[in-house]
Design a protein around this nucleic acid. Sequence first.
DNA 1: TAAAAAAATGTGTTCGAGCACATTTTAAGC
DNA 2: GCTTAAAATGTGCTCGAACACATTTTTTTA
Lengths: 347, 347
Amino acid sequence: MSRNYTISDIAKLVGVSKGTVDRVLHNRGKVSKAVHEKVTKILEEIDYQPNLIARNLKKNKIYRIALVFPNPEIDGYWTPCIDAILNIKSEFQAFGMLIESYFFDPKSSISFYDAQTKVLKSPPDAVLLAPIFQKEALMAIKNYALSGVIVATFNNRVYTQNNKSFIGQNLHQSGRVAAKLLANSASHTGDLAIIHIDEKYKQALYIQEKEKGFRAYFENLVGQKNKIITFKLKRANFEQQIGEFLKTNPNLVGIFVTTSKVFEIIPFIKKYTTRKIAVVGYDLLPQNVAFLKEDKIDFIIHQNPKQQVYLGLKSLAEYLLFDKEIKEQILLPIDIINSENVDLFMG
Amino acid sequence: MSRNYTISDIAKLVGVSKGTVDRVLHNRGKVSKAVHEKVTKILEEIDYQPNLIARNLKKNKIYRIALVFPNPEIDGYWTPCIDAILNIKSEFQAFGMLIESYFFDPKSSISFYDAQTKVLKSPPDAVLLAPIFQKEALMAIKNYALSGVIVATFNNRVYTQNNKSFIGQNLHQSGRVAAKLLANSASHTGDLAIIHIDEKYKQALYIQEKEKGFRAYFENLVGQKNKIITFKLKRANFEQQIGEFLKTNPNLVGIFVTTSKVFEIIPFIKKYTTRKIAVVGYDLLPQNVAFLKEDKIDFIIHQNPKQQVYLGLKSLAEYLLFDKEIKEQILLPIDIINSENVDLFMG
DNA sequence: TAAAAAAATGTGTTCGAGCACATTTTAAGC
DNA sequence: GCTTAAAATGTGCTCGAACACATTTTTTTA
């Protein structure tokens, strides 16, 4: 294949000047109908693709994307997002792409609100947002849209027209994956528990999704006789609650913890029973990884926040720079992690 | 952050012309020692990053990368690689990057050789190669190096100085993952089998790696009493061989198939025993996926050839276009697939 | 010390798209 | 038919790096 057609080539082909071709390309008007048609025809015929390098050199604009998510120092789940930012920077900063991070406290909706306000003060070209607080997020997204800022969300869903893209996992399906894993590794038939660890912040919606998926797996199964118990753990006094729960459920063979906080209950489980109870939880926090390697957690489902941020930022950057279409949703694979493949997901 | 420094900016800062700065940047000589030092100092001080857009516009070169791998019509394992090519094209063709595919027959080393010869006839800037045939691959890589063609390999390793990069999985570790999965899902202690399906082509090396990993997992385990049997299946007469194997090993609880050809033996296993035997194999061929969904295969390890090609091509493209460093090896995560997360790995 | 050679430095064009401004052509008004 | 406004079309500069070529400065040699 030879070099692509340039605007000058097309101008020559049609017999007009490149200014005219440019006006047709960008619908700037001031072109006679006849010429407009001729140019359009040629453009289609040769399938003109503008040279993005030249375009960007001319524009020579610095784009800014704001990334808004919970402070990793408060919730370690978000730590890997930092790496994603570094990766994106190394890929795109030569194109004049700036990434700015804004943290908020995942336990405080006020802090969430404040972060959005700060972003809006010097509006970037686009925002990638973890919409932890449903109501406040809807409000923020509306304001961004009013200021002409493109919005994409990741991690959990909110439903609004103004949200250009969502990047994350299918949580219902991830509940099913957990179910399948427990069905497979529980050494014999018995009861299974879904444990929600009270997170104070209103993640109700997305935790429910996981539970529904988990239960759905067993409902569709023929001849399955596992009893499934939902158990909500309140923050204070874990030990006592877990001790009692284990005592009242002597047939327990598997536990599904719906958040990344599995590690908080493992020591108590081991303390109050010697039976083999299979455990499945979420996310590669260092504490979880440690228990995984000690075989005290059997499987972890990896929500891959790093990849979520990476793909989200990449999608926005390519839209701003190269006019690439933004996918309405990007569903990440649901990674199953055990003690043997965990290391390859960390570097 | 404001706009980056340009060559003209630097020229002004040092008090020389941009031509001189350029000579320093590219070590083209003809610069007095004093000036050279002054420029270098400033360059370091401001951490000069050339504008890659401008650079590429000037160079205006069409780069070509050849991708050489087995014909997907002969071995379906390679089919997803096609998608990776499309992805890379959509990302890089606006930068003048051309990807050319060359197929060979994975059963014929002559066909492998022919493909390399064809590539060398109009040498591309870089080659991404699946070095199925060890000896022939070493030869080919040497020839590429002599012609100044950058070489990266994927899927399996060959060891040579001229290979700039390897993209693939740690096969030893993937054997361990299989072991862990079988240890976990076999309903009670019993014998485990490693089954190699004779592939005619000499994959000896990389299949052995998997076996070693599998065995290593159990060797390090304290108090594990599984017996592990290696079984080599010859091409002809699968049914009889498998029937006999199952008869002589009545305590079998798990099978690890070291290639993507698991699906070929599943029907016979189900025919000759009614016991629950856990099965772990490789790769998301449509036939394997079907058995996975029917619960006749328990887990599949995904080698992700698509991602291998994607990362390999991306790495080469970014090297050619942006002078990005090529990583000596990129180890992909070892994806564990079951019936519930499989769909998310296929899109 | 002047001429010639070599070394050092400077200048100006190119890549392709985008856009401001200049120029030409057509239409409108009297 | 001539002037003026409006519409259509053309021209030329810019973005930053790269590189060929031009010019200046320094060094060498007779």
